[in-house]
Nucleic acid binder design. Sequence first.
DNA 1: GCGACAG
DNA 2: ATCTTGTCGC
Length: 233
Amino acid sequence: MSHALPQWQGDTAALRALQSERATQVILRDAFAKPLRTIAGFDVGFEDDGATTRAAAILLDADTLAIIDQQVARLPTRMPYIPGLLSFRELPALLDALAMLKHAPDLAFIDGHGIAHPRRLGIAAHFGVETGIPSIGVGKTILVGEARMALHEMRGAFTPLRDGREQIGWLLRSKPGCLPLIVSPGHRVAMPSAPELVMRYVTKYRLPEPTRLADRLASRRDRGDGTTDERDD
DNA sequence: GCGACAG
DNA sequence: ATCTTGTCGC
């Protein structure tokens, strides 16, 4: 009986216009520490029938993948989910979680799309432009675009995701037998670098560690003892 | 007007 | 995203 998001009476057209403006600030060039020192994963989940937005941030050592810090931020949900406008609903909580970390990462992996978006400003790109932190979008399904070529079954294979004649990301087979990941640059990451950076952190699951761990934390499934469970992809 | 549509 | 058992496949 609890629930009901306070009716959101916002200007959708204005938000789309804002995205187009900010998409102008996206930089598709690698501009992160090399070698990477720390990386972070971000994802959002919900509580109280959606009334509360729960963002998770996990800071990892880029070499050992050891967890350096992990934080959860909660905020009352303000806006409903509208395809293409996801960042306005989830970014506020994500930024709170980021601020709670001991320190900012050299690179951020975000659950959602980077520039593989109608106006080239998915949540990962928006996050990057807002924070200046290099970012990559790691999504599980396509919002816009299509793959023209078949994707090999081999682990690590990738093929372009395109919208019309421009490439907006990649379909990446992170794990054999599993649906491909949709990977796209967010900010300060070059298109060719995205697949490799994601694969660098993929272990035995479909999702790369940063996003996989943030997903568990955001969805409150971070109980696992690492024994015989880990019901992922 | 009719679908499609991240999380 | 979230609600959920059993079930198919490596």
